[in-house]
Design a protein around this nucleic acid. Structure first.
Length: 909
RNA sequence: GCCUUGGUGGUGAAAUGGUAGACACGAGGGACUUAAAAUCCCUUGGACAGAAAUGUCCGUGCGGGUUCGAUUCCCGCCCGAGGCACCA
């Protein structure tokens, strides 16, 4: 009987589906373990082999954890709202829902072929009203909450209103509040709500006709589509993520994420501790607050700079400078974001005509306006210290402003001295101090004299939450007499209306303005929709209780599953989804809806799988193709060739002729009778003919081979090109396992007792697999497996005592063949419910080993031996010590004691 | 510019202070076969010596250092990948 993966795989896939083998139930007996994949956006192109990499890893881990006695929650769903479906709809008139449904079906079909152990009963789709009801619900909760900085948590807005009414709050007295109109009250509350409407500079993408969040823009271009983005002041819905900046930063410390990812988030949050100082500026002696991290350099201030967008610009521009300033503002405004970035090095600016007074020296310094100062960070105004800040330095050089060094002995003739080191000079009371001391002393001084205060700033901005698009969650907000008002909770979801055209209206309104009767109780509903990250921010909670129509997740359910123990996905979400989700979760935590303040305890970033393209070389002006090794002898053009007609870089010449009509009469210049193709690593894409479809691999090798191969390719976190070259190796490995059970038609498995050698092979594998899976080192596990199987084959070992546990060990990696063999071994239940075999020390360790090695006097050698000490490890250590003794002489006898499970102890005489 | 990574055979890679290259691919040779596929066995980092078993030297991006011993730890460079980038 041969290994027939086709029938085995379809048999077990339908068995699992029918028997609901992977259905997770809330079971407080077993410890829970929640394994989550980042759910995919179902694009029209379907899955390529790169997509399942992380899914396979998480599936192996899930299956392993089940064997280890955990109650595993392992769900899957679709991030189904998004731009591509909508753009397709604009082009074709086809409703995004139709294409999305079709794409989801295709994804599901592809996923099913790989044999994942998902609990499909828990599937979620973000575009499903039953799902986005809870996205809208969370939004309304945010609308109904404010951030209480004293309690450092979100609270219901009713608390804030009560404060306004009784004692007043934050500079608004109770009487002022009572006198305010409904509209004024609404405007005041907007300044506090977690989800609020406010005017800010936003990333506006004219081509897409929508605003974008910071993480959706890269290098001044939209991430989706790559269209130019400009800064524009607009009123938009926003989430007060910045209120959580500090907690988002501190929370990172206790997470088991990679350092690089945590670092990315830290940089994105961008905490900086400094001081705000007031300078009196202009004729009116207007107090202008600046932010600096280097108050110690205040004696070196020679000018001030305002951001062009700052409100102070108008006020501080003198009549005689008005024309020049206006011209400059116009110049800045015309620039696109991309141009600004491209021209970062060029220095521009204009003098306002006004002067500010340095509060410490009383000196008058000119106030300039320049785009190198950002309106959105700090106060939009800075004090410039050209001697000790490279940007100020460049500006001073360009406009001939004075440069005053205040650190002893530094040379500022060519560049500024930015380092925080040295001894202060020209700095009044700070003279003679070391910079670090001076920073603290200057902060104290400024605070004591009432000139300013310590301040922590964050780079993290509030998230712009509205998009002028159709295919997203509608806002449960209507405008009653112009006041944004929440649709009551019991009226959720506010369903996306049917429209027939998906473009913005002629008047420039979002597509929802086209909907008939888009109103609530006669009042107009909000026409923007929510951004992509809305639906993905709490989906991991919804999986816990996906059919609940009363709550996002039941309290008791969430207190069982708590949070995600293992999350696997790409780094591309570092500053988007992974920040928003953490924010969203912390908000729900504040309100008591979830019981953990961090959603994802451990996070693994799988690497990207790139494509490996193949090339043929056409001799210019002919239809003759020359093999790779000979191409330098001719003048050739490189042409991408479909990798499906290339095997191991050898071109299938007949298939090539049939591939394209223009190649039908192609001729070849061969080397050794073969046509060798060139290759390169590129992004996997249709246009480069290098897309590998997992279905094809499943059809020709089977899902088990695909799973093993993707893991065998290298470390999970590393990016690597897909290369089918090595796939035969893992396929052979599975066949070898099969042959331990069958010699053609003959069943080989016997009940004979295993010998020590065979047991040692098995138990070494158990130890290795356990250790490696826990560290996500799947490629080395598979290597260990291959060695074990080769050993058993060589020993002709087909004993049940060995093979039964072997099948269990195999099942996380190659579940289909494992199930089949498990059944053939006579088991009625599935291998999923088996128990991970115990690692038994007695087969690998001789109880205790004492070795004597000679030394000379003072040597302190230590050998780090693995916890699972076996004889080999001990011998290895002893060899090492013998090596050492060669160098140090043999005068003194040293006793080396090896204890099972623990290190080597060296006793010196 | 700053942060984070990584650099080992023809290829994917293993080894985190102790025999570098496990395991796998590819390549070469052989067995079985009418033949092919499949399967199995041998060789496979480089150089040199030898008829051969085998031996010697070199070798983990480059240059130093610590150590009896370094792919591994430390210092300084070079190159690649990813992220951030006028954040005061």
């Amino acid at each position: 009987m041969e290994y027939d993966f086709k029938s085995i795989e379809s048999k077990w896939q339908s068995y699992w589906a029918q028997k609901q083998t992977f259905k997770a139930v809330k079971d407080s007996e077993k410890p829970k373990f929640y394994v989550l994949d980042m759910f995919p956006y179902p694009s029209g192109a379907g899955l390529h082999v790169g997509h399942p990499l992380g899914y396979i890893a998480s599936d192996i881990f899930s299956r392993y954890k089940r064997l280890k006695g955990f109650n595993v929650l392992h769900p899957m769903g679709y991030d189904a709202f998004g731009l591509p479906a909508e753009q397709y709809a604009i082009q074709t008139g086809q409703h995004p829902e139709v294409t999305t449904t079709k794409n989801i079906a295709r994804y599901r079909e592809q996923l099913d072929k790989i044999g994942f152990s998902y609990d499909w009963d828990r599937e979620v789709k973000t575009c499903d009203p039953a799902f986005y009801k809870w996205t809208q619900w969370a939004f309304l909760k945010m609308f109904d909450s404010w951030y209480d900085t004293d309690a450092d948590k979100a609270r219901p807005i009713s608390d804030l209103i009560a404060r306004f009414e009784t004692t007043g709050y934050d500079g608004i007295s109770a009487s002022a509040w009572k006198e305010a109109s409904a509209k004024e009250k609404s405007d005041i509350l907007m300044n506090y709500r977690i989800a609020y409407q406010g005017e800010t500079a936003v990333n506006w993408c004219p081509k897409l006709g929508t605003v974008l969040a910071n993480d959706e823009v890269k290098d001044g271009l939209s991430l989706r589509g790559g269209y130019p983005v400009e800064q524009k002041k607009m009123t938009q819905w926003q989430l007060r993520v910045s209120a959580y900046a500090s907690r988002l930063l501190d929370g990172l410390d206790k997470l088991d994420w990679t350092d690089s990812l945590k670092e990315m988030q830290r940089n994105w949050i961008g905490k900086s501790q400094g001081t705000e100082v007031q300078f009196l500026c202009g004729e009116q002696k207007k107090a202008v607050t600046i932010f600096t991290t280097r108050v110690d350099t205040i004696f070196g201030v020679t000018f001030m700079v305002l951001a062009p967008e700052s409100e102070l610009v108008d006020e501080l521009t003198t009549a005689e400078n008005r024309a020049a300033v206006d011209e400059y503002l116009l110049y800045v405004k015309k620039k696109t974001e991309r141009e600004r970035i491209a021209e970062t090095k060029s220095v521009t600016g204009v003098f306002s005509g006004s002067y500010g007074i340095n509060p410490l020296t009383g000196e008058k310094v000119p106030i300039w306006i320049s785009e190198y100062v950002l309106a959105g960070y700090g106060t939009g105004a800075i004090m410039a210290v050209p001697a000790h800040d490279s940007r100020d330095y460049a500006f001073a050089k360009k406009f001939n402003l004075p440069i005053v060094p205040i650190i002893e002995g530094c040379d500022v003739s060519e560049q500024s001295f930015d380092a925080k080191e040295g001894i202060m000079c020209n700095s009044g009371f700070l003279d003679g101090m070391d910079v670090k001391t001076a920073i603290e002393r200057a902060k104290d001084y400024v605070e004591q004299k009432g000139l300013g205060r310590r301040k922590t700033n964050f780079r993290l901005r509030d998230a712009i939450f509205s998009r002028q698009r159709y295919w997203g969650e509608p806002f449960p907000i209507y405008y009653k007499d112009g006041i944004p008002t929440a649709v009551p909770f019991d009226k959720l979801p506010v369903e996306l209306p049917q429209i027939s055209e998906f473009k913005p209206t002629e008047a420039g309104e979002p597509p929802l303005a086209r909907a008939k009767d888009w109103t609530y109780e006669g009042y107009p509903l909000e026409t923007s929709t929510m951004p992509g990250f809305a639906g993905s921010s709490a989906y991991y909670l919804r999986y816990m209780d996906p059919h609940n129509s009363e709550a996002l997740v039941d309290k008791e359910v969430v207190s069982y599953w708590r949070n995600v123990d293992l999350y696997i996905g790409g780094t591309e979400h570092a500053t988007g989804h992974l920040i928003y989700s953490r924010f969203w979760n912390k908000f729900l935590y504040d309100l008591g809806y979830v019981c953990e303040d961090e959603p994802f305890r451990k996070l693994i970033n799988q690497g990207m799988i790139q494509g490996r393209s193949n090339f043929v070389y056409r001799i210019v002006g002919t239809n003759k193709f020359v093999s790779f090794g000979l191409k330098d002898q001719y003048d050739t053009t490189e042409i991408h060739v479909d990798i499906n007609i290339v095997r191991n870089d050898r071109l299938d010449m007949e298939a090539f002729k049939a591939w394209r009509p223009e190649f039908a009469d192609a001729e070849f210049v061969l080397e050794n009778g073969e046509y060798i193709c060139g290759w390169a690593v590129e992004k996997m894409s249709k246009s480069m003919f290098n897309v590998v479809n997992p279905d094809d691999i499943c059809a020709s090798y089977g899902a088990d081979t695909l799973r093993l191969y993707e893991m065998f390719l290298g470390p999970l976190e590393q990016s690597k090109p897909w290369d089918t070259k090595g796939i035969d190796g893992v396929n052979r490995f599975l066949k070898k396992i099969w042959r331990l059970f069958y010699d053609r038609e003959k069943w080989l498995v016997s009940d004979e007792k295993a010998n020590a050698q065979e047991l040692k092979t098995l138990h070494r594998l158990i130890g290795k697999e356990q250790e490696d899976i826990e560290t996500f080192s799947f490629n080395t596990t598979i290597s260990a497996f291959m060695i074990a199987v080769n050993d058993l084959t060589a020993m002709k070992c087909s004993k049940r005592e060995i093979l039964e546990p072997l099948v269990v060990l195999l099942s996380p990696f190659a579940p289909h063949i494992a199930e089949e063999l498990w059944q053939r071994l006579g088991h009625e239940d599935t291998v999923t419910y088996a128990t991970f075999p115990e690692y038994e020390e007695k087969y690998t360790v001789e109880d205790s080993c004492t070795y004597a090695v000679s030394f000379n006097g003072k040597t302190r050698f230590t050998a780090d031996l693995p916890k699972s000490l076996d004889k080999d490890a001990v011998e290895k250590a002893v060899r090492a010590m013998e090596q050492t003794s060669k160098y140090v002489g043999e005068q003194n006898i040293v006793k080396v004691i090896v204890v099972p499970g623990k290190i080597v102890n060296i006793v010196l005489k």
